[in-house]
Design a protein around this nucleic acid. Sequence first.
RNA 1: GCGCGAUUAGCUCAGUUGGUAGAGCAACUCAUUUACACUGAGAAGGUCGGGGGUUCAAGUCCCUCAUCGCGCACCA
Length: 744
Amino acid sequence: MDTEQNNNINPKFLNPYNPQSTEDNIYKLWEDSGFFNPDVCIEKGVTDENAKPFSMVLPPPNVTGTLHVGHAAMLTIEDIMVRFARMQGKRTLWLPGTDHAAIATQSKVEKILEKEGIKKNDLGREEFLNRVNIFAQDSHDTIVSQMKKIGASVDWSREAFTLDGKRNLAVRTAFKKMYEDGLIYRGHRIVNWDPKGQTVISDDEVIHEERKAKMYTFKYSKDFPISIATTRPETKVGDTAVAVNPTDDRYKDFIGKTYTIEDFCGVKLNIKIIADESIDKDFGTGALGVTPAHSQIDAEMAGRHNLPTIQVINEYAKMIVGDERILNKKTTEARNVVVEWLRTEGLLEKEEDITQNISIAERTGGIVEPLPKLQWFINVNKPIKDRNNKTLKELMLDAVRSGGINIIPDRFEKVYYNWIENLRDWCISRQIWYGHRIPVWYKKTITNEELGINNENTKEIYCGINPPEDIENWDQDPDTLDTWFSSGLWTFSTLGWPDLNALDFKTYHPTNMLETGSDIIFFWVARMILMSTYLLGEVPFKNVYFHGLVRDAQGKKMSKSLGNAIDPLVVSEKYGADAVRMSLIIGTGPGNDSRMSEDKIRAYKNYANKLWNITRFVLSSTSNIKYDADFSEYTDIDKVLINERDEFLKETTKEMEEYKFYIVGEKIYQYTWTRFADVIIEESKNILLESDDKSKISRAQFLLDTLIKILKVLHPFMPFVTEEIWGMMPIDEKKLLIVEKWPI
RNA sequence: GCGCGAUUAGCUCAGUUGGUAGAGCAACUCAUUUACACUGAGAAGGUCGGGGGUUCAAGUCCCUCAUCGCGCACCA
């Protein structure tokens, strides 16, 4: 190449590609262009006003800290979908936001305050919430800057927060409607109480962990005819029955009788022998001590047999009955006391080591204590008039069964159905301060105050979008809502609902795609389907794409405590966000866990540089011609190459539409490197030097045209380097690559 | 207990409706200043977890077993 030609090349190409000095500028270029916002795209004429919409909400990250590499993977997959849709000319909206994540955020802030020696009750509700808000804002700002670093092309002008004013209106509106339809009710039931977090949690927030435990077999007293087995002897002071199977000959004669035990470790018991089909004759002694206040199953049995419920454990997991031996003791201490008592009384028959699953609160790690409490629930089994008398359960099932929602990969449909079949009423009230306050007020009356807390139910209730007018006569329910209640509304609360005429709502709902982690299929995906099918009579999204977990190179879960977590910002800084994105996409099918290693990231950094050098060669060796997009004088040899390339582009487009990004990324990589660079460019060196003019021009046009097309299909995957190179391509009437047309 | 997934080259994974086993990374041999060393060329590497079946033909379909991972339920 002579010097004159090299003079036409941007001096940037004299050095290797430098993501550090490029990426932030490119992101700013996009932001300034306004093209993340579909309205601007229409205004500036890059998108047709009548174009088909493509809409997606960002699964809002929790404002509990910073983004991890799993978020980076999520953002990359979604950004690929969005950039592809935008380049296809669709009216493309990717709506960002963050999640207040009630319990998670509150307990995080509590922990931080604890280190300073401050308890939340010392601060009071208002001041504590101030502290949480400051923390949340800080978190939010970090998250936003991280998202920009990764290259997420979200429409910042529409950013939402699950706990802001607009979302609060949506929550109140939804609550009131459900309350009026009788779907939300207040009930006194056995709930999952988290003694550590001092709040009720839903069934889905309980995780099970295998632990070693002891199972004790004993009798309540010497004269009691039946032995029972338990792992929790301390709860037995709350027993009101012993249940046996009706067909069990051993116990037949006792059914229906009631025994009084005057002294069971200091507590008087009345035990009725009942027959219940649910009892397994072969398990333990074939007889179950029924503790209605502290077991879900027992409570149901108590309901069937009209048994009294005696609460013996309080919210601090301490005993509230008995004498000084157990009263006010922690359940675990009381257990030892009761076991010792049984032993000395000669009532303990057997003591065996077993492994059992214990219930743990997901967020706090507290051991869940089933307690009877007055809480708010969503009834999933009540027929709904406006919805053909279908229940919420049925609405949720129908949405997927009918094909209205397509789940990728489809094996998650079975998981979803399985969950719904076992679904019980959803407990939505939480005894925490951070969150949407329940829009219910109770009338103040002297009598009710005298009646005390157990008669809360008798108070006059007002439920409304706004507080009652004579507010001084009312107390608002102190509880807040499960964070997933507001998340369930996310696809439409972000688009202007409850204003049904909001333009965004009419244009973009139902959304086209929900991309999220398979671990929140129940928490979030199912709840969005519930809310949308009930409130709007339509699905929240037409497609769901699940991604798996990002693990380390050895396949271990990444965690801060293991020290194997890769910080997406650190590696992006080191290798460039494009390289990180590629490494997170390739080799990762939907729903499958993937592995992340620095080796892999490094390989794609090299690829970015390869593309850089390819461009340098193509530009410097074609600078004597003018690129013509409609060039038609190709040689036969080049026509063959064009066919091959277009075949590749066609396949790629098809696979993009099938969401097979893990394949497309790899194919582009391969075509660019092993085909275009290693073979076609190598051959071109001779052609461009030695052939006739027709061949030279044909090849030069082909090289430019192909590079342009590579940049386009690669853009969703590696947006920064492609946009940077695009800016230096000798093309007339060039737009930003982000809004260029997909090449096929 | 019920269900789901995985098992293919040293590692990570592809493999469409059955039709001669594929890629990246790593390792190996060679080239040595090239658009690019963040490089190029080449070669090597596999009884597709085991067993059985259907078929002209099975990595792919059916049955079964094993190992690993996960979900749900139970958890007296």
